[in-house]
Design a protein around this nucleic acid. Structure first.
Length: 922
RNA sequence: GGGCGUAUAGCUCAGUGGUAGAGCACUAUGUUGACAUCGUAGGGGUCGCAAGUUCAAUCCUUGCUACGCCCACCA
């Protein structure tokens, strides 16, 4: 018994590691429950390179609350956990390590490098999983997953092959977002568009062979406002270096200014004079006549808009840069290439492969970085007097979200997923409600994106990742198969070589809800736990991950991965800013755990999570929840010291006293609130329900009410209530509750983590509730009055109530101990008070007179009563006004009228009582 | 350019068609069989602005203002 006695203060650090190890070692995160209803969630796999940040803490707390709740409710609760191989991030980490030792990736073969990455993973890849344990997350570590596990790779390959065979994955040459720092293609989602201060240059593109035309600008009425004979067309660009690859100049077909020169040729004003190319002036709907000069240069290979225009109009697209976004240095001399390009363009028919081989960068610029080339081009044009103007301008520039470098649109061969096709089923699922997005406001965003989805580029020019299961014959023919032998079988006698590229990391994580469950081999497990029951994720990965899981889930299993998707917000810095390392405002969740305990941090996360809103970090609030844990701890300590311990029954014990009946009723109500909140995924409401029950009901009143009366019934009820508290609170504060659970009884075989959810088996006793509410009102009103009159709160006073109602009399007679100890009254006598100064206390229908001869300041008591009377009168008057309005009686809902009448009567009675009390004082 | 969200007590946030709540902070206080990481009592809000609907609006509608986020190809 002594060793289960609770210490005076609660020390989270002393128990957290102990309980976590105990749960994990005993398999309590996934108890054997073959006959129970399964409940499954999957953890958004953190990057294997990651460490726990505050966002993980929120995300995983919410999931742990859910899974612990469902486990306590008896479900076969499975929380799948694992890490993501995170292609780019991990390769970057290892390459950075190489740099530190003057080494580099290209010193190794692909195989040797991948071995190095695995080595790194085994040594350093477990940081975050250890940190999730510190947070108390009850994941099924026995089945920990990694997206590069052999069975996962098998699933990835199968999906790729199947989708390829269905025509949903294909190889295509398109303009991709090329990251010159990482030297790989990335998807649209991985591009971050930022506003940057830039320039727009206006250049003259001279018309061929000295032609000229009259350039006329008119106002809205058609009056000429400007007229000039020109031998050039004015072109604006933010990227002069791309001029070298121009294939045409486009104007709007209805733009009268350029009508005279449509179809003519103009010269790109850069490069050796004799070898400058001539390009046609064409019409296309893309140029906006009101923007810039209304004429746009078309560089199909380095601009997404131009690419479309070039494709529509059969304009050649000349690639100018290499994989590092430096101006090409390969190929034949410029003079030769330029002439060839001119000839091809004139012929109107061209072979894209030949076009791609043409390096149209003049020797002077070859090998230059794109920005150096820009400078040089500008200087050269300016020197020739062909620059019209430079304006400063904010421009939108695409940055790679990993490499941090400006993305270069590049024309390359990549693998694509037909996302538009795969998006159909998920769109339908959300529209019909088969998948519910919580909060619902995200649906519109989801639709918006899914309805306009572009082909998903899934190939990456990296080494670390799932290598694409495609093989090529020398002539370029493609064979996609599960392995080399199968590919060779398809290829017959042809010699084949495997695609060097790997798949986008999100391609594999999109399979997470079923590939982690053994799909496609382990049909049983997958069948039992797929579809999952819920997905919780931050809204920031709605497109990256959630939507793609829906696409892949439907495509590969014909089912939605889960019926419900809960999206939470971001955890922001205390000042409301986004946390970022560069701003230095990152709050470390592990530091908070060290300081306040995991339970406090978890409770903070849950209590602050109202649907959809971002959470501002507030350490003081975390501290407050640490205090809450201590409060509970001390309440339990008090109970323990009075012989109150573990309850033997799941159902509420039989109770006869109003106080005991009342607290049982409060448990019933709290439980209902909590269950409803959990069903609605209102984590804040759920946490607050328990918080207020524990602090306001149990600690502030129940414990105070039962002090001095620890009879068998009270002990049984108190023990039961405390147990229910521990169970209800456990999903939020697993550590302190488990510790108290074990200390309050010998329950080594019945740990809290797998205990049973409350089933009180009784309802709320209205009479008991009314009685306790009356006692609380009496005590409260006495305290307030004493305080306002400056009477020592501990003073024990006499009290008189000459004509009690039957109910009040019962309340008083049944609770002598409470009236004496909490109300600090020497009982309440049912007889007239002696004459003299007294304060008067209302409670329900009673006006209790408390003589204070010699002590009381009559004026102060009068002031107090007058203030209260004014307030009652004001309320009553306001209600009276409402009731006397005929329109109210006619049109308002009957309940509202009834309520107003009742409230009015109540305030009226209170006013009458107070008026009488005042009169008594003379 | 489109979409979304937020504006409620000093701060951080809940909330409801019938004139508002919590935590922290603040003020006073420390007596009662756990807890000062605490107890008791108290002060504090024309619920962003304007109009409309309604018997009644902080809550519904519209407009405005401010802030935030996401998406988007104006060279």
């Amino acid at each position: 018994m002594t060793d289960s006695t609770l210490d005076k203060t609660f020390d989270p650090a002393a128990i957290e590691a102990k309980w976590y190890a105990h749960w994990e070692a005993n398999g309590l995160f996934r108890p054997e429950r073959p006959d129970a209803q399964p409940y499954t969630i999957v953890n958004p796999p953190p990057n294997v390179t990651g460490s726990l940040h505050i966002g993980h803490a929120l995300d995983n707390t919410l999931q742990d609350v859910v899974i612990r709740y469902e486990r306590l409710r008896g479900k076969d609760a499975l929380w799948v956990v694992g890490t993501d191989h995170a292609g780019i991030a991990t390769q970057m980490v290892v390459e950075r390590q190489f740099e530190a030792s003057q080494d580099k990736r290209t010193n190794y073969t692909r195989e040797a490098f991948i071995d190095k990455v695995w080595e790194w993973k085994h040594e350093s890849g477990g940081t975050i999983t250890g940190q999730l344990r510190r947070l108390g997350c009850s994941m099924d570590w026995s089945r920990e997953q990694f997206t590069m596990d052999p069975h996962f790779t098998k699933a990835v390959v199968k999906v790729f092959v199947d989708l390829f065979n269905q025509g949903l994955i294909y190889r295509d040459k398109r303009l991709v977002n090329w990251d010159p720092a990482l030297k790989t293609a990335i998807s649209d989602l991985e591009v971050e568009n930022r506003d940057v201060a830039g320039h727009m240059w206006h250049f003259k593109y001279p018309l061929a062979s000295g032609e000229s035309y009259t350039y006329i600008e008119r106002d809205a009425d058609g009056a000429v406002v400007f007229e000039e004979v020109r031998d050039y067309i004015s072109i604006a660009t933010t990227r002069p270096e791309t001029m070298l690859g121009d294939g045409a100049v486009a104007v709007h077909p209805d733009d009268p200014r350029y009508a005279p020169i449509v179809g003519k040729l103009c010269e790109i004003p850069v490069g050796p004079k004799a070898q400058r190319r001539l390009i046609p002036i064409i019409t296309d709907l893309y140029p906006d006549p009101d923007f810039g000069s209304g004429a746009v240069k078309i560089t199909g290979a380095h601009d997404a808009n131009d690419y479309d225009v070039a494709r529509r109009n059969g304009i050649p697209m000349y690639r100018l840069m290499d994989e590092a976004a430096q101006m090409r240095a390969d190929g034949a001399p410029y003079a030769e290439v330029s002439a060839r390009a001119q000839a091809i363009a004139a012929s109107g028919a061209f072979d894209p492969a030949e076009i791609d081989a043409l390096n149209l960068v003049p020797e002077a610029y070859r090998g230059l970085d794109r920005y150096a080339a820009r400078k040089a081009v500008i200087a050269d044009i300016d020197a020739e007097g062909l620059m019209i103007a430079v304006e400063d301008k904010m421009i939108v520039q695409p940055f790679g979200d990993r490499g941090g470098v400006v993305i270069e649109p590049m024309l390359t061969d990549q693998w694509y997923v037909n996302a538009a096709e795969l998006a159909k089923a998920p769109l339908d699922a959300v529209r019909t409600g088969a998948v519910e997005i919580v909060p619902k406001s995200w649906e519109k965003t989801f639709f918006n994106w899914m309805e306009n989805i572009q082909p998903w580029c899934v190939s990456r020019q990296l080494w670390w990742g799932h290598q694409i299961p495609a093989w090529y014959a020398d002539d370029g023919e493609i064979f996609v198969a599960e392995d080399e032998a199968a590919a060779q079988a398809l290829a017959g006698d042809l010699k084949i070589t495997r695609d060097e590229d790997v798949l986008d990391t999100w391609f594999s994580s999109a399979l997470w809800p079923f590939a982690t469950l053994g799909w496609p081999d382990d049909a049983e497990l997958a069948k039992r736990h797929y579809p999952n029951d819920l997905l919780i994720s931050g809204f920031d990965i709605l497109f990256f991950w959630d939507a793609r899981m829906m696409m892949m889930g439907q495509a590969m299993t014909g089912q939605n991965p889960w019926p419900r998707l809960y999206l939470h917000g971001l955890v922001r810095a205390p000042d409301g800013q986004k946390m970022s390392k560069s701003k230095g405002n990152v709050v470390d969740p592990l530091g908070l755990i060290d300081q306040f305990g995991a339970d406090a941090l978890r409770f903070f996360m849950a209590a602050m999570e109202s649907q959809g809103r971002d959470i501002k970090m507030d350490e003081r609030r975390v501290e407050g929840y640490r205090n809450f844990a201590t409060k509970l701890w001390n309440a339990a300590r008090f109970c323990q010291s009075n012989g109150i311990g573990a309850s033997a029954s799941l159902a509420a014990p039989a109770a006869t006293s109003a106080v005991n009946k009342w607290i049982i009723g409060e448990v019933v109500e709290t439980l209902a609130t909590l269950d409803q909140a959990m069903a609605d995924l209102r984590f804040d409401a759920a946490a607050n329900a328990v918080y207020h029950f524990v602090w306001d009901q149990f600690c502030d009143w129940y414990i105070e009410l039962i002090k001095g009366n620890f009879d068998a019934e009270t002990k049984a009820v108190a023990g039961w209530v405390l147990d229910q508290i521990l169970v209800m609170l456990h999903p939020f504060m697993p550590f302190v509750t488990e510790e108290l659970w074990s200390k309050l009884g010998d329950r080594a075989d019945y740990p809290l983590i797998t205990a049973k959810w409350p089933e009180p088996g009784v309802g709320v006793d209205a009479a008991a509730k009314a009685e306790v509410d009356w006692l609380i009102a009496l005590v409260g009103n006495l305290r307030t009055a004493k305080n306002e009159l400056g009477i020592n709160p501990g003073a024990k006073l006499d009290a008189f109530l000459p004509e009690p109602s039957a109910v009040t009399r019962g309340n008083i007679e049944r609770n002598p101990a409470v009236i004496e100890r909490l109300a600090r009254l020497n009982g309440i006598r049912f007889e007239p008070a002696p004459a003299g100064a007294a304060m008067q206390i209302g409670a329900g229908d009673a006006n209790i007179i408390v003589p204070l001869a010699g002590v009381i300041d009559i004026a102060a008591e009068k002031a107090r009563l007058t203030k209260a009377l004014e307030s009652s009168t004001k309320e009553a008057k306001s209600l009276e006004g409402r009731l006397s309005n005929p329109a109210f009686a006619e049109k308002a809902k009957p309940e509202a009228v009834e309520k107003a009448r009742a409230d009015h009567a109540l305030h009226q009675a209170e006013a009458t009582r107070l008026a009488a009390a005042l009169a008594r004082l003379g």
